[in-house]
């Protein structure tokens, strides 16, 4: 009996594999086992750019990995598990992932919060809601066209911006450079 429950658990968990779930934003039915009570408030910060800016310029000893994403962005969702994995490994390596969601206000309660809960995201998620994008995109990187996914990695003395998608190995490789 215990074994079959265990097996069931494994099967259910396997069904949650990110890789198979690029269009994860809508269908939530497979996530019954992690369904939580609906959040009555967002429970995550919503920032204007000037409020986000300090998170992009910390001067401690950590390496920060800032990923710009949204639940509607399929390539973002595809790479999110790699950022989660990197974040889990962060304590040992002294780095930290911050996921900056660019979901639109109408999607916060319907898409974003359920997504965070269903995927059980552990990395810190903040929302950037600042429609005058032309004013702040160049402040994040002068060459960023505005396409997402995009990622900023910085430490006290190094800063690099990537308008691209990542795999786990690519992220790891970049982070090694930051550690040297």
């Amino acid at each position: 009996m215990i074994r079959s429950v265990l097996l069931l658990c494994i099967l259910v968990l396997a069904g949650c594999d990110f890789k198979e779930r690029e269009k994860a934003t809508s269908a939530n039915s497979e996530f019954v086992e992690t369904e939580l009570a609906p959040a009555d408030s967002l429970g995550i910060p919503v920032y204007k750019f000037d409020e986000l800016e300090p998170l992009l310029n910390k001067k401690d000893d950590k390496i920060y990995i800032i990923n710009f994403w949204a639940t509607w962005c399929a390539p973002c969702i595809k790479e999110l598990p790699y950022f989660e994995k990197i974040n889990r490994e962060g304590e040992a390596h002294n780095w930290k992932v911050i996921l900056v969601s660019l979901d639109m206000p109408s999607m916060w309660k319907t898409k974003l919060i359920p997504f965070i809960k269903n995927k059980n995201l552990k990395a810190e998620v903040v929302v950037l809601d600042d429609p005058d994008q032309n004013s702040w995109i160049p402040k994040i990187d002068k060459d960023w066209s505005g396409a997402i996914p995009a990622t900023l990695i910085y430490s006290r003395n190094k800063r690099k911006f990537y308008e691209q998608t990542f795999t786990y190995d690519m992220l790891n490789k970049e982070l090694q450079e930051f550690q040297n």
Binding site: W144, A147, I148
Partner: peptide
Amino acid sequence: TTRAIGCSIK
């Protein structure tokens, strides 16, 4: 020239 967030071209 101006910039805005958009969906990367697939």
